[in-house]
Deep mutational scan, measured.
Amino acid sequence: KLLSSIEQACDICRLKKLKCSKEKPKCAKCLKNNWECRYSPKTKRSPLTRAHLTEVESRLERLE
């Protein structure tokens, strides 16, 4: 599967780190437990900047 097509777990399953069936409108866990089942939009991760990478590398060197 391509990364862009990976389905996201519902908010509660993601928060509780449960295996989500990803069914809509309610996944199996939410249906069974009568929880409100919501699927928040995916958040875009910002790409690493060179400055951040350099900072992490220098912190790693100090720890070694």
Score class of each variant (00 low, 15 high):
A28R: 15
A9L: 00
R62S: 09
K17R: 07
K44Q: 15
L18Y: 08
S40I: 01
R45H: 01
L63N: 00
K22Q: 08
K44T: 10
L2I: 12
E57K: 03
E64C: 09
A9M: 00
E7C: 12
K24F: 15
E23G: 10
L48G: 07
C30N: 07
N34S: 12
E61F: 13
T49R: 01
E61R: 12
N33G: 12
K29D: 07
K22G: 04
P41M: 08
L60S: 08
L15T: 11
N34D: 12
K42D: 06
K26R: 14
A9W: 03
K1S: 15
N33E: 09
K29I: 08
K24I: 15
R50L: 05
K22A: 01
K26E: 10
C13L: 03
K17L: 04
L53C: 10
R62V: 13
T43G: 09
L63D: 03
T43F: 08
K16I: 00
P25N: 04
L63H: 03
N34Y: 11
S4T: 11
V56Y: 08
S58Q: 15
L60G: 05
R14N: 00
R59G: 05
H52W: 10
V56C: 13
P47V: 07
T54A: 06
E64I: 09
A28I: 14
C37M: 07
E57P: 07
I6P: 12
E7I: 10
K44N: 10
T54L: 07
H52D: 05
S40W: 06
L63S: 03
A51Y: 07
C13G: 01
C30G: 07
L18S: 11
P25G: 11
L48D: 00
S58E: 15
S21F: 02
P47L: 02
K32W: 07
K1E: 00
E7W: 12
K16P: 01
E36R: 11
L3D: 15
S5V: 11
K19Q: 05
I12R: 12
N33Y: 10
K24A: 15
L15I: 11
R50H: 02
S58I: 15
K26D: 08
T43S: 10
E57T: 03
S4K: 07
V56N: 00
K44R: 12
L53V: 13
S58C: 15
L2S: 14
L63I: 15
K19R: 14
I12V: 13
R62T: 11
K29T: 08
L53F: 03
I6L: 10
T43Y: 01
E7H: 08
T54Q: 09
L3F: 14
R62H: 07
R50A: 02
L53G: 00
A9V: 09
C27F: 07
K44I: 15
L60A: 13
N33W: 01
C20A: 00
E57N: 00
E57M: 00
L15Q: 11
S46F: 03
A9S: 04
K19F: 02
K29F: 06
T43D: 08
K17W: 06
K17N: 06
V56S: 00
K26V: 10
I6K: 09
I6R: 05
S40C: 01
K44S: 05
S58K: 13
E36H: 11
T54E: 09
C13R: 05
L53K: 04
L60C: 14
T43N: 07
H52P: 03
A9P: 05
